[in-house]
Design a protein around this nucleic acid. Structure first.
Lengths: 150, 150
DNA sequence: CGCGTATACGTGTAGTTACACCCATATGCT
DNA sequence: AGCATATGGGTGTAACTACACGTATACGCG
């Protein structure tokens, strides 16, 4: 274990990350708002388009609580962009993107692209690349679940 | 502007960042839960301890919506850790940490430290340093507000 | 077949986040 | 002094997030 963490709270990695997340989310949301969708919903939709999966599988991929995903999908289902059907196992829910969802993705992609490009233009491609590398490294190394299972 | 962003959505900087934030938040929260406090609340408390400020000033520093901060402070005020008093300008609210809040900070610091150290131990100090550098760089460059004011 | 356990979700509760809008007070100008 | 405007906060609404707990169905064993 390292001797000591940098600073008592102002250097909290989690807090700094949350702050950046707030900033970035605002930027993306501002661009996407013209299409009445938020970046969280957009990426949920884009991820769902990768193929039909059960709620649990989907949640595991996103490392999101099942109940969180369930609730986050609700507005998308209301808009008719995703379908939440009873799966082979009747306890399960099969999540898939509808035709309308695919259309929505197509029309919102340019907005997302503009947001992403704006960020890359401001930070520079190199910086964004470095940020991504560090994020991926962290995602690859940190435990998915905060270990405490019997 | 860069030619084109990396990938249609799976490489979305915002989404990757949000995923990492979820992971990290879970780790910190797991450590802090022994003291019945969340990392968001802990860092709010730690930040508040930097000095008395009005709600607006505090919100501006954290780049958080005033209403968000107001609601996030409510549970801390209920626990008696922060005081929300009427300021010089009676419209304003003066936020400060109470003695109980300072005690709480003292008792929870070791838990936060353990979380921070665990992260540094897993990722390596160099990687955490690089991550911080990139976060700070981004926070320094990106616009605070998603520009759209008359 | 029937029972115990494991699995898949939903609900309750609580906190985080932001936007739109409203109310009250301060401030500046005439 | 009086009014227009600006500023500081709160509320309504909605979405994101997770944990604890409950319900229903599947699955394996006797």
């Amino acid at each position: 274990m390292p001797t000591a963490p940098s600073i008592p709270a102002f250097g909290c990695t989690c807090a700094r990350l949350r702050k950046l997340t707030r900033r970035l989310t605002r930027i993306y949301d501002a661009h996407l708002s013209a299409q009445g969708i938020k970046v969280t919903q957009y990426s949920l939709l884009a991820n769902a388009a990768r193929g039909e999966r059960t709620l649990s599988e989907f949640a595991a991929e996103l490392e999101m609580d099942r109940s969180t995903l369930s609730r986050n999908l609700a507005p998308l289902a209301e808009q008719g962009w995703v379908s939440i059907a009873v799966g082979a196992d009747p306890r399960s829910r099969s999540i898939s993107v509808t035709a309308a969802g695919r259309r929505k993705l197509k029309t919102t992609l340019p907005l997302w692209r503009k947001a992403q490009c704006e960020v890359e233009a401001i930070l520079g491609a190199a910086s964004v690349g470095e940020l991504h590398r560090e994020i991926e490294r962290a995602l690859g190394a940190l435990p998915t679940t905060s270990g405490k299972r019997p």
